[in-house]
Amino acid sequence: MANDLFKMPETAVSTDEFIKGLWRENPVFVQVLGMCPVLAVTNSGINAIAMGLATTFVLVMSNILVSSLRKVIPKQVRIATYILIIATFVTVVEYLIQAISLDLHKALGAFISLIVVNCVILGRAEAFASKNTLANSFLDGLGMGLGFTFALLCLGVVREILGSGTIFGIGLFPDGFQSWVVMILPGGGFFTMGAWLLFFNWLKERNKKREAALSESGTGVK
C-alpha cells in the first residue's frame, strides 16, 4: 500500500495543475468561493498577504494529506475526515502566526480560525485531492492558494490605497489627500469586489469578441 502511494503517477506531473489556479480557475474571481475572508481581511495589503499565505499553507498541507490518505479514508465519513484534517492545520497556522507577530494575529482575529470553513479548501480536498496523485494535488493546492492570495492582494491594495492613502504602510499621497473612509468600511469591500468582478467580466467579453472577429476574418481569407 505504502509503495503504491508514492509510485510515479500514470499521468505525468503536469504544471497545468499549478497554473490553472492562478488565472483560468482562480478560486475567487472565477469560482467565487471563500468570499468571507476575501472581503473581511482585505482592508490593507499586509493583512491580505498574511491571510493569503496562511490559507495557501493550509490548502497545500491538507491537499497533501488528503491525497496520500485517499485510499484509506472510507467514503461515508470523508467530509468529516477532511474537516478534521483542515482544522488541525488551521490550529497549527494560528499558533504559528501568534508566535511570529502578535499584531498580525490581532488584526486578523477570528478569521484565522475561520479558514476551517473556507469553502475553497474543502472544495479542493473533495473535488481534486481525493481523486488525484500526491504530486498533482500538491501543485493544485499551491496554485489555488497563490491564486487566492493574488485575489486578496488585488482587493487589499485597492482598498488600502483609496482608504488610507498608503501601500503596505508607506504613504503615497501628499498631506492634502482626503482618504475614502468608505473603502476601509465593510461596504467598501463589497464595492471593490463587485468592481473587480465587473472588470474581469469585461475582459472576458472583450476576448470573446476578439476571438469571434479573428475566426470570422480567418474564414474570410479562405
Partner: peptide, 17 residues
C-alpha cells in the same frame, strides 16, 4: 455585463453602508 454576482455585490455594499 453587470448581471449576476457583480450586481449582487454592489447591492450588498449599499445595504452594508
Amino acid at each position: 455585463l453587470v448581471k449576476g454576482t457583480a450586481l449582487t455585490l454592489m447591492l450588498a455594499g449599499i445595504l452594508s453602508l
